[in-house]
Simulated assay, not measured.
Amino acid sequence: MEHYYLIAARCLLATVFAVAFLGKARSARRRQAFRTTVRNLISRRAAGPLAGLILCCEAAIAVLLVPPVTARAGFALAAGLLSVFIAGVFRAIRNGIFAECGCFGDHSAVLGYPIIVRNGLLLAVAVPGLVLAPGAVAVAPALAAAIAGVLVAIVYVRYLDIAMARVLAWLKPRLVPESREPG
């Protein structure tokens, strides 16, 4: 059963990081927007190289997670990069930096707690890959697990920010009390 989890996890993370890479690398405008986000978080001089390094890591994760032989390295790189992302967003929140993440190119969200939750969930998928070794599996269940991983990734990339915003809005205490009519 753990092999099917690994297949689904590899597909989920590879798809998410491939979408993230392609979303930023697809055009000069998107790369520049991502560099601007990085510049808002760190020094100007380091922004270009760091943005390039992040793009390289995202592409490497997507590639490393595909073959089982390199999946462990892909999981390790994903866990490391996600940890850096979580720390960076915490730093931005703590310092009052208002910026878009540029995570998926045009499909972006403001740096905040929903992004921390999103990256924490992805980290929770990546960490078991460091522990569980991939092995030989039957083709049909492996294909089903791979399809499930890709489908979850698509839903995750498209709808998680919206869902998190709604949950946080629901949990947020009301600032203005509702008026009640006497009666």
Rank of each mutant, 00 (worst) to 15 (best):
M1A: 14
I115H: 06
A62I: 14
L122N: 01
R31W: 02
V139L: 12
A87D: 15
R94E: 12
A47T: 13
G88Y: 01
A25E: 08
I61A: 01
A136T: 15
A8Q: 10
A76P: 00
A14Y: 06
E2G: 15
R39M: 05
L12G: 07
C11A: 12
L41A: 09
G112L: 02
L171N: 08
A9P: 12
A14F: 06
A62H: 13
F75W: 11
M164D: 02
I154S: 07
K172H: 10
A14R: 09
A124D: 08
P173I: 00
A87S: 14
P141W: 13
L41S: 10
P134E: 05
A140W: 12
V137W: 11
A9H: 07
A140N: 09
L175G: 05
A8R: 08
G149D: 10
V69T: 11
P182L: 10
R31D: 06
A60Q: 04
W170S: 10
P182C: 10
L122K: 00
C101M: 12
V127G: 02
A136N: 11
T70R: 08
A87K: 13
I115G: 03
A144E: 09
I162R: 09
R91N: 14
R166F: 10
I154C: 06
G102T: 14
V150A: 09
I93S: 05
N95H: 15
V117P: 08
G23N: 05
R94T: 14
A142G: 15
R44Y: 03
G129I: 10
V152M: 14
F90N: 05
L123H: 03
I115D: 05
N40Y: 01
A146W: 03
L121R: 12
L175P: 00
F21K: 01
G149H: 04
V176P: 06
P177R: 07
Y5K: 03
L175A: 06
V152I: 15
A73G: 03
A78V: 00
R30Q: 15
A99H: 07
P114K: 06
A62E: 13
A47S: 13
N40V: 01
A92G: 12
L143W: 14
V38K: 11
T36S: 05
R158G: 00
V117F: 07
A99P: 06
C56W: 11
Q32Y: 14
A73W: 01
A142K: 11
V167L: 09
R72G: 07
Q32F: 12
A62C: 12
L81T: 04
C57T: 05
V69A: 14
G88S: 04
F85P: 00
I42W: 15
R30N: 13
G120K: 04
A78D: 06
Y156T: 03
A71E: 00
A51F: 01
F104L: 08
T36W: 08
P141L: 11
A142T: 15
F21M: 04
N95E: 12
V89M: 02
V89W: 01
Q32I: 11
I86T: 09
L22D: 03
A18E: 09
L41F: 09
A145M: 12
A8G: 09
T36R: 08
W170V: 06
A153E: 03
L123V: 05
F17Y: 12
C103I: 02
A109L: 14
V63M: 02
I42L: 14
P49C: 04
R45M: 07
A153D: 03
P182K: 09
C103E: 10
C101L: 13
G149V: 04
